[in-house]
C-alpha cells in the first residue's frame, strides 16, 4: 500500500480510520468471518422459515411420531413425540432465542450505555448513587427475580414469552453500564477531552464527539458476548418451564423436551442442541475477532 495509491483526485491523502483498520483486521480473521457467515445463515433461516414453504411448526403427522431423520420426506431433524417436524421447530425456536439476544443487546446498548456514560461523566455523588443502584439490582439472584415476575404478573395480563424478554432486558444492561462507566471515567481523564474543554467545546459535544466514539470498541465486543449469555439464560428459564410455552418453541424448550425422550429419540436433543452450540460458537468467534480487531494491543 503506497501513499500514491491513496491520494484522492483533489490531491488529499485519504486517512485510515481506526474503524477501517479494525474492519481490515476482522476480515483477515478466518474464524471470525466464518462465524459471521454461520450467524447470518442461522438468522436468515430462522426468520425466513415462514416463507420457505416448510410445514407449520404445529403440524402433526400421526404417522411419524418420534421418527428419526428422514430426508426423503423432508424431516431433516426427525420428529418429536407429537409428530411435529423438528427442523421447522428448531428454526422457529431460533426466532425466539435470537430475539431474546437482540432485545437484551438493544436494552443493554441503550440503557446501559446511557446510564454508564452519564454516571462516568457526571461523576461525584451522582455517579455514586447511579452505580449503587446497579449494584443493588445486580445482587438480586436472577432466577429468583424471574420466578417473582412470573408469579406476580398474571398470565392473561402479559404473555410468558414477553415476560421473559422483560426480565432479561431488565438485568442485561447492568454489566454494560459498568463497562461503559469504567471506559468513560478513563477517557474523561484523557488530554484530548481537556483540550476540547479548553477550546470551549460544550459538554454535550464532548460526550457525543469525544467520549462515546471512544467507548464503542469495548461496547461492541461486550455486546457479542452478551448475546450467547442471554441465549443460554433463555434456554435455562425455558428448560425450567417458566419461559416459552407450548405450542411455541425455543431452543431451550426443544432441548428440554428432547432430554425427556433421549433414550428413544436421541435426535430430538442432538439436533436442536447442535444448532444452538454452533450458533453460540459462531457468536464467540465473532466476539473474539472483534476484540482482536478493535484492540490489537491485547493480542
Amino acid at each position: 500500500m503506497t501513499d500514491a495509491a491513496m491520494v484522492s483526485p483533489r490531491g488529499e491523502v485519504k486517512g485510515r480510520s481506526l474503524w477501517a483498520d479494525a474492519r481490515r483486521r476482522f476480515l483477515r480473521n478466518r474464524a471470525a468471518v466464518a462465524g459471521l457467515v454461520v450467524l447470518a445463515v442461522v438468522t436468515l433461516l430462522s426468520f425466513g422459515a415462514p416463507f420457505l414453504g416448510l410445514r407449520a411448526p404445529d403440524d402433526i403427522n400421526w404417522d411419524m411420531i418420534s421418527a428419526p431423520p428422514d430426508y426423503a420426506q423432508g424431516y431433516y431433524f426427525g420428529t418429536d413425540q407429537n409428530g411435529r417436524d423438528l427442523f421447522v421447530r428448531t428454526l422457529y425456536g431460533g426466532q425466539v432465542s435470537l430475539m431474546v439476544g437482540l432485545v437484551a443487546t438493544l436494552v443493554s446498548l441503550v440503557i446501559g450505555t446511557l446510564w454508564g456514560a452519564s454516571a462516568g461523566y457526571l461523576g461525584g455523588r451522582i455517579d455514586n448513587v447511579m452505580m449503587r443502584i446497579v449494584d443493588i439490582l445486580y445482587s438480586i439472584p436472577f432466577v429468583f427475580f424471574v420466578i417473582l415476575l412470573t408469579v406476580a404478573i398474571p398470565r392473561n395480563f402479559i404473555a410468558p414469552t414477553m415476560l421473559m424478554y422483560l426480565a432479561i432486558g431488565a438485568v442485561s444492561w447492568l454489566d454494560m453500564a459498568r463497562i461503559v462507566r469504567g471506559q468513560t471515567v478513563s477517557i474523561r481523564r484523557k488530554e484530548f477531552i481537556e483540550a476540547a474543554h479548553a477550546s470551549g467545546v460544550s459538554s454535550w459535544h464532548i460526550i457525543t464527539r469525544h467520549i462515546i466514539p471512544n467507548c464503542l470498541g469495548p461496547v461492541v465486543v461486550y455486546m457479542t458476548l452478551t448475546v450467547p449469555a442471554v441465549i443460554l439464560t433463555e434456554s435455562f428459564i425455558s428448560y425450567l418451564g417458566m419461559g416459552v410455552q407450548e405450542p411455541d418453541s425455543s431452543w431451550g424448550t426443544l432441548i428440554s423436551e428432547g432430554v425427556n425422550a433421549m433414550e428413544v429419540a436421541p435426535w430430538a436433543v442432538i439436533y436442536p442442541s447442535g444448532v444452538m452450540v454452533v450458533t453460540l460458537l459462531a457468536l464467540n468467534f465473532v466476539g473474539d475477532g472483534l476484540r482482536d480487531a478493535l484492540d490489537p494491543k491485547d493480542r
Binding site: 484523557k190 484530548f192 483540550a195 476540547a196 471512544n214
Partner: peptide, 13 residues
C-alpha cells in the same frame, strides 16, 4: 493549551 503527550491529546477517532 498544548499538552505533553502529543498522541493522547488528539481524539483517535
Amino acid at each position: 493549551i498544548i499538552f505533553q503527550d502529543p498522541l493522547a491529546s488528539l481524539n483517535p477517532r
